[in-house]
Nucleic acid binder design. Structure first.
Length: 883
DNA sequence: AGTTTCACG
DNA sequence: ACGTACGTGAAACTG
């Protein structure tokens, strides 16, 4: 017995879209309607077991209905882009399910379905129609059942003629009369005003059809009679509009709707693309010996190396191998290493770390340290650090999958080996969490499981390398990868291993001073408040300030009153406690984060801190710094700046030398925007904020006062961040209108900058991404969002990322070049820190002169722009003194 | 684990 | 009208 299931594609897509929250995959593609559609298909296949299947779509904006009634579907809000972008995906989904689809220019899905059900009636074939639209009920017959979605999407209610009779007291065709009388606001079908479902049903029970109701209008009473007589024409037209056209010219070859079942390979690939992980897992698992795409996979040998097989591994390593180092812990400067795995000579090997350290491991150890033996890893930076601390140096890394995956999508939040395998359709491997457990439950599994898991990692790296390399080529990031990021990873390791010396006793002394200050402050705050409370608790502080003391609450957070510095500063005139709290906050921050926090990171043995620069975190290409973060050491306020006094050279007689780029972001902007005025300003080496003030306020240089310069500076910041009048007004404490005037003034004199801002947003919309000078890429899927806030955010990011990202490219270049230069010139000076636009070195006395010359020269010459780059250099006995 | 606050460029 | 300035990490508190 054949069974045809027909889905009203547009209706179900709409239902799914509005029933589910706006899901999206990691690249920002919205997927909720596709997901809902998929669950609907799966359910129908399982429950209905169709032999024939079809999804019908509307085609063309104008249907024949519009000829008769221009306002048809007029009041309807247009399809949001978040939904319309999902239709191509739904069509792709259907191809993977191998479900035929049909649409015909000028007709709605209804009409196609109406025609097919008529043909089925004539043939006596069984049909199920799935829709969210009640109109469909008119098609019900002995052979045709209608499934209407109820709440959400997964729930459907089946209607055959008997059930329609039961529910409405009507035969299916009378559904048209029902709608003729009551109308349908969603399709802008008028009906008779004042007639709802109840009245319409009552009328139809008595008279049977719209025509009969109208001819008996005189029998109705009062208002109703008037309305019906007045809107008789509307009712007739509404009935026509609601009537599904069942004579669409289509050659219905019943066999062409035959349903052959899903295409598992295509469906897996589709699920993976949309990141429907749960659905992917529910699919029949790929057969034994198949990879996740269902392709046959060659058998791999996993070898857990023992003392006896050490020699065999050593021989097998050869000139190149994929290598994985299993590091336990977040901080690679104090991490344990479980072991190493290799893919070499077509085999996978697992080497427990103790064996590497044993006598027989010497050959492997020297292979690891041999620059000429090439290694491919996932996160070579972390591996190199962890290994170095254990006395087993690593060299010769010629590919890093983590770095490649980061460049390919720097906003990817789960840059893990197993996420990468998934994303690039490599054989799936288990998640670490699965194998090891997490948090307190962390346990190493027994050798067999451990060695298989780690071997699979090496195997995954081996497979990923050519795939990622090709992707890098495709995105024109080969040079960025091989010439910049990969060498930089080595440079960073050197800096981090070297570490920077901290005067711990000086820091402790400073901490004691702070403690005394804090004690006094707390006492005074408690006195003002009239009771003791935890000042560090925003909740308790809020209660004291806004309830007990009755101060005005300007701002709220998700959980209660906001007590941030901006709020407190506005409250300062009302109560003396406020100034005390602001002071307390400042000192408490210094104490907890910069004294106690930093002291915890100082190594007993060396008196140094070893930060961990992370190369794959920031979406713009910047570095970030952890354990401790040395990129946010205080400088703006003098009390905090004193912290810098404890960063000292590691050897007596040496000094700290620091060089920072002057206005690198605005110089980058001048270059990429090619704004004549901005370029000229830098070519003349002008003070850029003063120059901006002159142009924006239209005054001469000697007319610019400090307030004008301050405002101009804020405008320049705003430009770099992707300006909005609102943001600038907040920053300067002026009205939005005034801010808008500033911006307008700015763009009037820096027209090239305005053009850049406009163009880059268009470019982002066109390509879906923006790039830096060195082709670093950032995808901005939200640039097409219909939500103003989300879209605006993406637009500002489109403006900011090429600027911030190019500046990051440049200082990274300078670091690689500087490291080479130190080596070439055989200097003892060492690079220690990078703080986004600043490089910090320690320098022996006799190299001060040359370093003072070289460092700014290398930094300024790192990349040739159409405006000069400039770096200012200073040195002194501590970091504090490099000002 | 999530929120708030604040340190830096 | 809408109502956020861009990019990070650490500490403390709070569920």
């Amino acid at each position: 017995m054949d069974k045809l299931v027909i889905i009203d594609g547009n209706s179900i897509a709409n239902r799914a879209f509005y029933a589910l929250p706006l899901l999206s995959n990691s690249s920002g593609l919205h997927t909720n309607a596709v997901f809902g559609f998929t669950t609907m298909l799966l359910r129908l296949i399982e429950e209905q077991k169709p032999t024939h299947f079809l999804v019908a779509f509307d085609a063309g904006k104008i249907t024949f209905r519009h000829k008769d009634y221009k306002e048809y579907k007029g009041g309807r809000t247009k399809t949001p882009p978040e939904l319309s972008e999902q239709f191509p995906l739904i069509k792709e989904l259907l191809r993977a399910f191998r479900i035929p689809q049909f649409e015909l220019e000028g007709y709605e899905a209804d009409d196609i379905i109406g025609t097919l059900t008529r043909l089925a009636d004539e043939k006596g074939e069984e049909v199920l129609v799935v829709s969210g639209d009640k109109d469909m009920l008119q098609l019900a017959s002995n052979h045709v059942t209608i499934a209407l979605t109820r709440k959400g999407i997964s729930d459907v209610e089946l209607y055959n003629p008997e059930e329609i009779k039961e529910r409405y007291g009507l035969v299916p065709l009378q559904i048209i009369d029902l709608k003729g009388l009551m109308g349908d606001s969603s399709d802008n079908i008028p009906g008779i005003p004042g007639v709802g479902e109840k009245t319409a049903l009552k009328m139809l029970l008595e008279y049977g059809s719209v025509e009969e109701v109208l001819s008996h209008a005189s029998e109705l009473k009062g208002k109703m009679k008037e309305k019906v007589e007045q809107h008789a024409q509307d009712a007739i037209m509404s009935k026509e509009l609601a009537t599904i056209f069942r004579e669409v010219p289509m050659s219905s070859e019943w066999d062409s709707f035959q349903y052959p079942g899903i295409d598992p390979q295509a469906l897996r690939a589709f699920y993976r693309k949309l990141e429907f992980k749960s659905l992917l897992e529910k699919m029949e698992p790929a057969g034994e010996g198949e990879d996740s795409l269902g392709q046959a996979e060659e058998k791999l040998a996993f070898i857990a190396v023992t003392e006896d097989s050490l020699a065999e591994l050593t021989e097998s390593l050869g000139d190149s191998a994929a290598l994985h180092v299993e590091v336990i812990g977040e901080n690679p400067h104090q991490a344990d290493i479980v072991g190493l795995s290799f893919f070499a000579s077509d085999k996978c090997w697992y080497l427990p770390f103790e064996l590497l350290l044993s006598e027989g491991g010497a050959g492997i150890k020297s292979w690891l340290a041999d620059e000429t033996k090439k290694k491919q890893l996932f996160d070579s930076h972390k591996a190199r650090l962890a290994l170095a601390w254990k006395g087993t140096p690593l060299a010769g890394v010629n590919f890093d999958c983590l770095l490649a995956a980061y460049l390919l999508d720097p906003t990817e939040s789960t840059l893990t080996l197993n996420g990468m395998a998934y994303k690039h359709a490599l054989p799936a491997i288990r998640a670490d969490e699965d194998v090891f457990g997490k948090g307190a439950k962390f346990r190493l599994p027994e050798l067999a499981a451990l060695s298989e898991h780690l071997c699979r990692k090496a195997d995954t790296i081996r497979r990923a390398v050519p795939v990622l390399e090709q992707e890098l080529d495709k995105s024109e990031m080969r040079d960025l990868f091989f010439e910049l990021e990969l060498p930089l990873a080595g440079v960073l390791s050197e800096m981090e291993m070297k570490g920077i010396k901290v005067d711990a006793s000086g820091l402790r002394l400073f901490g004691e001073e702070l403690s005394k200050q804090l004690e006094g402050m707390m006492k005074r705050i408690y006195e003002h408040a009239g009771l003791e409370f935890n000042i560090n608790s925003p909740k308790q502080l809020g209660e004291i300030l806004f309830e007990k003391l009755g101060l005005p609450a300007y701002k709220k957070t998700k959980t209660g009153y906001s007590t941030d510095a901006e709020v407190l500063e506005r409250l300062a005139p009302y109560h003396d406690i406020i100034a005390e709290i602001l002071n307390y906050r400042q000192i408490a921050k210094l104490q907890s984060t910069y004294v106690e926090g930093l002291l915890k990171e100082v190594r007993e043995e060396t008196g140094k801190v070893h930060t961990y620069y992370r190369q794959t975190i920031a979406a713009t290409g910047r570095l970030s710094s952890q354990f401790p973060n040395l990129q946010n050491i205080p400088i703006r306020l003098e009390e905090g700046r004193k912290i810098r006094k404890v960063f000292v050279p590691s050897k007596p007689g040496w000094q700290i030398l620091a060089a920072d780029y002057s206005q690198i972001e605005l110089r980058v902007l001048a270059h990429i925007s090619q704004d004549d005025n901005l370029k000229e300003a830098f070519l003349q080496n002008m003070d850029i904020h003063t120059k901006t003030a002159m142009d924006v306020f239209g005054v001469a240089a000697d007319q610019v006062d400090s307030n004008m310069r301050r405002q101009a500076k804020a405008v320049n910041f705003g430009i770099v961040y992707g300006i909005s009048d609102y943001g600038l007004s907040q920053n300067l404490g002026i009205t939005r209108k005034e801010a808008a005037t500033f911006i307008e003034q700015y763009f009037a004199v820096f027209q090239g900058v305005r053009k850049y801002m406009d163009d880059i947003v268009l470019e982002a919309r066109q390509n879906g991404y923006v790039t830096t000078l060195l082709q670093r890429r950032r995808y901005l899927p939200e640039i097409t969002a219909s939500n103003f806030n989300i879209r605006s955010f993406a637009e500002r990011t489109a403006m900011n990322t090429p600027i911030q990202g190019t500046a990051a490219d440049i200082i990274k270049l300078a670091m690689v070049q500087m490291s080479q230069r130190l080596q070439q010139d055989k200097l003892q000076s060492r690079m220690l820190l990078q703080v986004h636009d600043e490089l910090v070195f320690e320098v022996p006395e006799d190299e001060l002169e040359i370093m003072e010359r070289i460092v700014p020269e290398v930094m300024a010459g790192a990349l040739k722009l159409d405006v000069p780059l400039r770096a200012d250099v200073n040195y002194g006995l501590t970091w504090y003194e490099t000002k």
